[in-house]
Nucleic acid binder design. Structure first.
Length: 408
RNA sequence: GCGUAGAUGGUGGAGUGGUCUAUCACAACAGACUGUAAAUCUGUCGCCUUCGGGCUUCGUAGGUUCGAAUCCUACUCUACGCA
């Protein structure tokens, strides 16, 4: 089936909607959470496990697969989905985020979602000292980006065209235009300059995609999403959404480094401007609370490394908030990770998993990753269901009250 | 019984007259993690603290010295070797 997006129901009084994205490799019931498999693997899991925990699609990364093993080899496999033996829909990110994480954010302690306090401190710090000796691994110009490999330090160059060529070779059903993800520390003038450039890159991405035609790896037509930027500035966000919305993209990604508040505001500004009939993906978000604000403001799909990364570092989601299984209190805790969830990991005690963590056994990462992804995928699926049932707001209140009881 | 080597904080192991509460690693105890430079990173890790600092530690007991984990003596214990 060709790429197509259908809206089944709208959440009254909000920008939220329930829908289905049809792709050549199957459907995605939206809203949906898409697990991240950066290097064509959801870390610590087999694709059978990823499928069984309820994932509908996976998202891989252009930058990382380009560096290793190289898009040529992936193409020989018939695309990254075939290479990793994943049979459902797939996404690839353009490498634009690496412009941020290896450039502006490199060594700065600035992350995808920062608190306002951290940003304030960073901005002050930036004024106070010269930044000349900062070892950025990225150089941005009008045509593209030079960047240094994180593997061996060698220099490479991405342009919008190059990113399209690589993503055609990787063969995902849905892929993203090459954008510049800016630092939240960047001032208005820079954000403005950056979105203008990102818009020019978007046009070039679209042109190159049209020129390339179907994926060389899969022989299938791929869907291209434009990526909206603009930092925390309402006029820039709206301008970016309008500009890209007028272009012939199949859908839209919303990018950027956020503060917690932006997820409720920036996303709304953008989705108010974007064409309603096309799917929107919120890049790199999120935490449980983020899904509610994202979905209410018009987001259809999410991806985030958090469930798998925190899992490898010993943290698990529960209905009562995150728990850190390294903590002494779990050494003899005979409960499963979340007693109210029945899944593959339910028969393992917290005590056992704490033991695996303490002895650096790989299985800890696997079990917690399965649990966390299942928790998040199910949460978004439950939100979807509640939207269809008309019980969304009740579901939201109950969930958030319990999960964030210490804060709310 | 004789000889040799050695005894350092939860563990291993540096330090061999002052800058030593004592490098470092591990363990332990917490924290962070949002388009994955991440099975990673950060902090604490003798006791007390009004966080300025105060007090007590390097097998035990003495001694030398202005000053000892470091030198001397005795003792205790451990390892290896010889009987």
């Amino acid at each position: 089936m060709e790429f197509k997006f259908e809206i089944e129901k709208k959440l009254v009084g909000t920008l939220g909607r329930v829908g289905t994205i049809h792709t050549p490799h199957g459907d995605i019931q939206t809203p949906a959470f898409i697990p991240v498999g950066t290097k064509a693997t959801v870390k610590a899991l087999t694709v059978e496990q990823v499928k069984d925990l309820g994932a509908q699609a996976v998202l891989a990364n252009t930058y990382h697969l380009y560096l290793e093993p190289g898009e040529g080899l992936v193409q020989k496999h018939g695309g990254f989905a075939k290479m990793m033996h994943w049979q459902g829909p797939t996404f690839t990110d353009s490498g634009g985020f690496q412009v941020f994480s290896l450039g502006a954010a490199y060594g700065e302690g600035v992350s995808k979602v920062a608190t306002n306090e951290v940003l304030a401190a960073k901005i002050t710090e930036q004024k106070d000292e010269e930044k000349s000796d900062r070892k950025t691994k990225v150089k941005i110009d009008e045509d593209g980006v030079d960047f240094q490999s994180v593997i061996d330090g060698s220099w490479h160059r991405f342009t919008p065209e190059r990113s399209m060529q690589i993503q055609h070779a990787l063969g995902a059903d849905i892929f993203f235009a090459f954008d510049e993800c800016t630092s939240p520390l960047a001032p208005y003038e820079y954000q403005k300059k950056a979105i203008d450039r990102t818009h020019r890159w978007a046009k070039r991405s679209l042109d190159e995609h049209t020129k390339l035609g179907v994926s060389q790896a899969t022989g299938r037509k791929q869907a291209l999403y434009g990526v909206v930027q603009g930092g925390s500035f309402e006029d820039l966000r709206r301008e970016s959404a309008r500009t890209l919305g007028a272009m012939d993209f199949d859908g839209y990604g919303i990018g950027g480094s956020f503060t917690k508040d932006d997820i409720g505001t920036a996303v709304r500004w953008v989705c108010e401007e974007l064409p309603e009939g096309k799917p929107r993906h919120l890049l790199g978000i999120g935490e449980p609370i983020d899904f509610f604000y994202g979905i209410e403001n018009g987001i259809d799909t999410f991806d985030c490394v958090s469930p798998t990364r925190i899992a490898r570092n010993g943290a698990a989601y529960t209905f009562d908030g995150r728990i850190n299984l390294h903590n002494a209190k779990y050494v003899e805790d005979m409960l499963p990770l979340e007693p109210e969830i029945l899944n593959y990991t339910s028969s393992y005690t917290r005590s056992y998993i704490a033991h695996l963590l303490r002895s650096n056994e790989m299985l800890a990462a696997t079990l917690i990753s399965i649990h966390n992804l299942h928790f998040i995928v199910s949460l978004v699926a439950s939100i979807r269901k509640s939207m269809l049932d008309g019980t969304y707001f009740e579901f939201k209140e109950n969930f958030l009250k319990r999960y964030y009881k210490d804060i709310v």
